[in-house]
Design a protein around this nucleic acid. Structure first.
Length: 348
DNA sequence: AAATCGGGGCT
DNA sequence: AGCCCAGATTT
């Protein structure tokens, strides 16, 4: 039997029961695919359920305020996904009369949909013969075929694109794509792959050479930047919290945090309150109710060292992006994880 | 081509 | 600590 058929047979026998595998509705599949970008199934699943319940159709989604989308996205990370979805939903409503496109060539033009997602939606919703190429597929193909070009180089990407296209089962692209990713997720895992249970091990280069650990190859290393965030929390006499709406050119775009002084390195409390910016905003004599320990918050490309300083007095000057928000209304706005956790502890 | 964009789980 | 996760966009 052909290896592609072995793979599909294996998939049908052991596949996980995931909700987006029960539909061919392009909107629903789009929702699942965007949520699952760089996100494990178990982490994305509850978000998928909540989004589908609140926005059953692309028309419902298109009508949502951006703040509502970001709020529902809170905690999932890579928030531009949510903002791009809103743009695409509006575009589908206007240019496609609310009917979500299913062809690769139309999908690839939409905001937030790249090669992987266009291939996924077009194959799953319309069985278009497009091979997906995600992290799972890179790993499976590199091991199976023994491809040692780096998956994060331009030439490597071309080679893997060709390999994925060649390997595609054109008679059942949808099941083939699902099977490739399922194999990567359940068997051909990054660490300690379960080669003993792999349905296609007898044709696998890495299995036959006992070299799964050598694939895939990555060329680049991640560079991590350190940043030092000093947040100031001020609660006024009416129990409202002074919040800050973030800009759209940094992490946590358009989400809410607190008045922030960022420094280039870690300061002591004495050094912090002597800073000219701090004096300008809060005056010379700071009345500090309490200050938190330094919290290390780890992002992929940044390590944040975050401190919260609770103040008694209100700022002398107000920044345009600052706004007082009632505690009750905090649950309506999107907060980064580290902010949410601190406020949750502080207020409860 | 390289940098940027989160948060969580596994080793 | 380092790597990876149903990647895409910006610089």
């Amino acid at each position: 039997m052909h290896v592609q058929q072995e793979l599909i047979n294996w998939y049908h026998a052991i596949k996980r029961d995931l909700p987006w595998r029960h539909t061919t509705d392009a909107y629903t599949i789009w929702l699942s695919e965007i949520i699952l970008q760089q996100t494990r199934v178990e982490q994305g699943l509850p978000y998928y359920q909540r989004f589908l319940e609140k926005y059953p159709t692309v028309i419902d989604f298109a009508a949502a305020p951006e703040d509502d989308i970001l709020k529902l996205w809170q905690g999932l990370g890579y928030y531009s996904r949510g903002r791009n979805m809103l743009k695409t939903a509006k575009q589908v409503q206007e240019e496609y009369n609310g009917v979500f496109p299913t062809s690769y060539d139309q999908l690839i033009k939409l905001k937030g949909i790249g090669e992987y997602t266009a291939a996924a939606i077009s194959s799953f919703s319309a069985n278009e013969a497009r091979a997906v190429l995600d992290g799972n597929v890179y790993r499976v193909l590199s091991r199976y075929l023994g491809i040692s070009q780096p998956i994060d180089s331009t030439t490597g990407k071309k080679i893997f694109r060709q390999a994925a296209d060649d390997f595609l089962n054109e008679k059942d692209p949808a099941a083939h794509n699902q099977a490739m990713m399922e194999l990567g997720a359940l068997v051909c895992k990054p660490k300690n792959p379960a080669c003993g249970t792999c349905p296609i091990r007898m044709g696998c280069y890495a299995f036959l050479h006992n070299a799964a650990g050598s694939f895939p190859v990555k060329a680049k290393k991640i560079k991590v930047k350190e940043r030092f965030f000093n947040y100031f929390l001020f609660e006024d006499e009416n129990g409202r919290i002074l919040m800050n709406k973030r800009s759209d050119n940094d992490i946590w775009a358009n989400m809410y945090d607190l008045p922030l002084i960022e420094t280039t390195h870690q300061l002591s409390m004495d050094e912090l309150i002597a800073l000219p910016e701090v004096v300008e905003i809060f005056g010379k004599k700071l009345i500090i109710t309490k200050s938190s320990p330094i919290i290390k918050h780890v992002l992929t490309h940044q390590h944040l060292y975050v401190r919260f300083v609770v103040l008694k007095q209100k700022p002398l000057t107000m920044h345009p992006n600052w706004v007082f928000i009632e505690v009750e209304n905090l649950k309506k706005i999107a907060l980064p994880k580290v902010i949410f956790i601190f406020l949750d502890n502080f207020l409860n």
